[in-house]
Design a protein around this nucleic acid. Structure first.
Length: 466
DNA sequence: ACCGGAATCA
DNA sequence: TGATTCCGGT
């Protein structure tokens, strides 16, 4: 490339933090149909900046959940320009790119506040994460409406830790530009999962979390209401996944892959998805070398993907949106999959925060791009189709475990007013599972009955018949 | 500052 | 597709 930008000159070649296997999921990148275009996306970059203490003076979380302020627009633009080898980048252009996200429901502008934007983190949803062993997670058990529990969620660090049992103490101390600039090929532009601190623990919990995905049946004899059966061949077509390095898990600075431990507890074929040594559920200590690339046999990382909900962020379309026909989408809409395990943060409900209300921030309900006011249920509808994707049986989405950034339809999230005030302005610290129950599901598929229960019921029927 | 259309690029 | 660039408008 003719780019002589600083990042190319100053950055160390392929430092460990940019090792293969620790990357943003595919949805974070451009589709594979666009070879060589897997560049970091701006919102990734923003998130990463936000996570770095060294850039607190440039950009920082501030205000409501998901809200951040670009304190030094020129510097952010400069950094972005460096990152993208666009030496002529400026805030005007960068802000244009940010505006580009409005329609995608990734970001919206906090009106009345200069250089202030807000992530729609409520759309962060885990979808099709059946192999996440929620059944054994106190955190999810407590909140799981599938098992009829309405108990207060166990949001203790221990509980959350059960989901992400190897959360590191810190992920600091790395440069945003610590990446391989010499080989920005398909594997050269990975970002670390720790850019998603919403996978972190210690989050304040909401007293009335929405429903979420039920425990995953280990031996499902029935069809999955959402048309997903992980036991079917190809259920996890993870061929496109960034692979975990062979025989290694997470460097201490990475957040653990929740799939990893979950997979290890599952019967075939899930356990076989694990890298050698993981299938037995054995924990690995410190990270092994991550020199491997995509050659990890069977090693599959978590994928972050878009949700099968209406209102899904359109970036997901790059991943799965091309698989579904309109008809399939409609079907899915009519029968929303119960596959979402949301890690939404509440703020993204779009509800104006009490803080903001106090500030008297002007709201503009008519503004299409202004999601502040919103209950996301309002910002889904009509145009949501543009941003949704399907998890029809043919879709690739249904075949993978994914975390999604998700828009949703129908107030699955509690109003912000029902939520405890944020402890920290850091919007990614909280963890709130949500999963919209599919209202149109037939009773037999009703999520009100846990999958386990249904399994038991099925087994009982079998016994009766026999 | 902020917005969004349009053309263009990779 | 996801920007980048430009630009007229508010």
């Amino acid at each position: 490339m003719d780019c002589n930008c600083v990042s190319d000159l100053l950055l160390p070649p392929v430092p460990a933090l940019w090792t293969p296997g620790f990357a943003f999921p595919d949805w974070a990148y451009k589709p594979e149909s666009s070879p060589g275009s897997r560049q970091i996306q701006l919102w990734h970059f923003i998130l990463e900046l936000l996570q770095k203490e060294e850039y607190q003076g440039v950009i920082a979380w501030q205000g409501d959940y998901g809200e951040f302020v670009i304190k030094d627009p020129d510097e952010v633009a400069r950094l972005w320009g460096i990152r993208k080898c666009k030496p002529h980048m400026n805030y005007d252009k960068l802000s244009r790119a940010l505006r580009y996200y409005y329609n995608k429901r990734i970001l919206h502008k906090t009106k009345g506040k200069r250089f202030t934007y807000k992530f729609n983190f409520s759309k962060v949803v885990l979808v099709n994460y059946p192999i996440l062993d929620m059944a054994n997670s106190p955190f999810f058990l407590a909140q799981n409406h599938f098992n009829g529990s309405s108990t207060t969620p166990d949001c203790s660090p221990e509980a959350i830790q059960s989901l992400f049992p190897r959360l590191p103490d810190s992920s600091r101390g790395t440069s945003l530009f610590d990446r391989g600039t010499t080989a920005p090929g398909p594997e050269g532009d990975k970002m670390r999962l720790d850019t998603f601190p919403f996978l972190s623990s210690g989050a304040p919990c909401y007293s009335k979390p929405p429903s979420l995905l039920g425990p995953y049946p280990r031996t499902p004899p029935f069809d999955y209401p959402w048309g997903f059966n992980p036991y079917l061949p190809g259920a996890f077509s993870l061929n496109n996944c960034p692979k975990l390095p062979p025989g290694s898990l997470y460097p201490s600075q990475f957040y653990p892959n929740p799939l990893q431990s979950s997979l290890s507890q599952l019967p075939h074929p899930f356990s076989s998805l694990l890298p050698p040594g993981e299938a037995g559920g054995g924990e690995r200590g410190t990270a092994g070398q991550t020199g491997g690339t995509n050659s990890t046999p069977g090693g599959q990382p978590a994928r972050l993907c878009l949700p099968p909900y209406p209102g899904s962020l359109s970036m997901g379309r790059t991943d799965i949106g091309n698989g579904a026909t309109l008809g399939e989408r409609e079907r899915v809409e009519a029968n929303p999959p119960v596959t979402g395990l949301s890690l939404g943060l509440g703020a993204g409900t779009g509800q104006q925060s009490p803080t903001e209300r106090r500030r008297g921030v002007k709201q503009d309900p008519e503004s299409d791009s202004d999601l502040e006011i919103t209950d996301l249920s309002d910002c889904s509808s009509e145009n949501e189709n543009e941003h949704e994707f399907s998890i029809g049986k043919e879709t690739r989405l249904a075949n993978r475990s994914q975390i999604v950034l998700d828009g949703k339809k129908g107030g699955m999230l509690p109003p912000i007013s029902s939520l405890p005030p944020p402890v920290s302005p850091h919007p990614l610290k909280s963890l709130m599972p949500i999963t919209p129950p599919p209202p149109s599901l037939p009773p037999s598929l009703s999520p009100s009955m846990s999958l386990h229960e249904r399994h038991r019921e099925t087994e009982t029927l079998k016994m009766i018949h026999s």
